[in-house]
């Protein structure tokens, strides 16, 4: 699902939940969390390739959303706004991680049989090199343009394009091996 797919999702019940949450209603906020945590966790895990860090980042996203809800005016849909916070938060952690992560670290295993046939590709995305993975996730799965990705990751637009092609090349090779 790309970013552009979110714009039409703002239905009335969600507006009510947002409005109640803005008034401090934790039960309403919990429902928002339940509706959106899967999407938020997905972007965190795919960017960070570490379930523990992804869980931390996912919580961090919802803490920020809770704190900033009063600033949400509804100019964009809630899902777009939430997803923008999720992506930026995950990228912040990704930046810190860039310095610390060891290349030899064991690759995480994604739990859950619900992944079905996509499981293999999910695992391979997590195996991608740090920067290539981030570019791939943001471009192919989150719908960002290379210029936006370059700004978000602090790299040149050309690097974003070359990393994306590198990621695709690696995935095609690895899929063939397995």
């Amino acid at each position: 699902m790309l970013r552009s797919d979110y714009t039409e999702q703002s239905a009335s019940p969600m507006d009510d939940l947002v409005s109640l949450s803005q008034q401090g209603d934790l039960k309403a906020f919990r429902q928002l969390y339940q509706q959106h945590s899967g999407r938020v966790y997905a972007v965190c895990l795919r960017l960070l390739a570490d379930p523990s860090k992804a869980e931390d980042a996912c919580q961090e996203v919802f803490v920020k959303v809770w704190q900033q809800l009063a600033l949400f005016r509804g100019d964009s849909s809630f899902t777009t706004w939430l997803h923008s916070i999720a992506t930026r938060t995950a990228i912040d952690v990704w930046r810190q991680d860039k310095l610390l992560r060891l290349a030899t670290e064991e690759m995480p295993d994604i739990a859950g049989a619900e992944l079905g046939q996509s499981r293999e590709l999910e695992q391979l995305i997590l195996r991608l090199p740090h920067q290539a993975r981030a570019v791939f996730v943001l471009f192919a799965l989150e719908g960002y343009q290379h210029q936006e990705i370059a700004e978000l990751l602090g790299i040149a637009e050309g690097s974003s394009k070359s990393q994306y092609h590198r990621a695709r090349q690696l995935l095609r090779e690895w899929l063939d091996e397995n």
């Binding site: 699902m1 919990r30 969390y33 339940q34 945590s37 899967g38 999407r39 966790y41 997905a42 895990l45 795919r46 379930p51 992804a54 869980e55 996912c58 919580q59 919802f62 803490v63 994604i110 739990a111 859950g112 619900e114 992944l115 046939q117 996509s118 590709l121 999910e122 192919a140 799965l141 899929l175």
Partner: peptide
Amino acid sequence: LIAGLSSELKPSRDLWPEL
């Protein structure tokens, strides 16, 4: 294959109590 990826993934535990 990319188009078939799920838009949602589930954490291995309930994050709500901590959150």
